[in-house]
């Protein structure tokens, strides 16, 4: 009973917030609805017993990706009149995209209902092993059977990250940052000299 109520609550909220992501006028509101959508999706994951995936969804998407989205969108100076001005010009393209998406949905559901696809048949092979949490199951799979693929994916991400840094990094010479190790290495003897000059002679520095 509670399970069913929770499912419909999460599902309805998920769909409603997903619709509001594209319906709301203010982009910041859109991002906030998107966050709510992620959160409800995580709730659904918990309901099917995939709590590890649910937590990853919240940590990665809500905790990191969406914060950066929000960060960028908040700082944009958006002129709503200008946004709406392009509506007529982009209208045909929008219709085209909508038709393509609709066709894909219809095709996907049709093919699935027709029984020609054998996607995700519940034959018990995907179920978690009894007495083992799904973290352990995922770990055993990732670091056992799919070790090479997992490491390769990590390497691809590393290359992508280094690429992004190389492309956007520029050395700035006009800023004067703090060099902490240099400051720490500096001793009182290096900074001050204690001399007793003769009267009238002065000191050479």
């Amino acid at each position: 009973m509670i399970h069913i109520i929770a499912f419909y609550l999460f599902a309805v909220l998920l769909i409603a917030s997903a619709v509001l992501v594209i319906m709301s006028r203010n982009p910041v509101h859109s991002v906030l609805w998107l966050i709510l959508a992620f959160f409800n999706a995580a709730g659904l994951m918990v309901l099917v017993g995939a709590e590890f995936i649910a937590m990853l969804l919240v940590i990665v998407y809500v905790g990191a990706v969406a914060v950066l989205f929000l960060f960028v969108v908040m700082m944009l100076d958006i002129d709503f009149a200008e946004l709406r001005a392009g509506f007529v010009k982009n209208f045909p393209l929008g219709i085209l995209l909508a038709v393509v998406l609709l066709a894909e949905l219809v095709l996907g559901f049709g093919a699935y209902r027709a029984g020609t696809l054998k996607l995700g048949e519940a034959d018990g092979t995907a179920a978690t092993i009894a007495g083992r949490s799904n973290i352990e199951s995922i770990g055993a799979l990732l670091y056992g059977e799919y070790l090479f693929l997992f490491e390769a994916a990590g390497l691809v991400l590393l290359v992508a990250m280094i690429g992004a840094i190389v492309l956007t990094h520029r050395e700035r010479t006009d800023t004067r940052g703090q060099n902490v190790s240099k400051q720490n290495k500096r001793r009182a003897e290096d900074a001050t000299v204690n001399v007793k000059p003769e009267v009238g002679k002065g000191v050479t520095l």
């Binding site: 966050i35 937590m55 919240v58 940590i59 905790g63 914060v67 960060f71």
Partner: peptide, 25 residues
């Protein structure tokens, strides 16, 4: 007493930034 307790805490504490960001904006 869930088996992803620590991840749950990490997830929830990553949410706490939203209150501040929403307030600021």
């Amino acid at each position: 007493d869930i088996n992803v307790g620590l991840l749950y805490i990490l997830a929830i504490s990553s949410l706490s930034v939203y209150g501040v960001v929403m307030a600021g904006w």
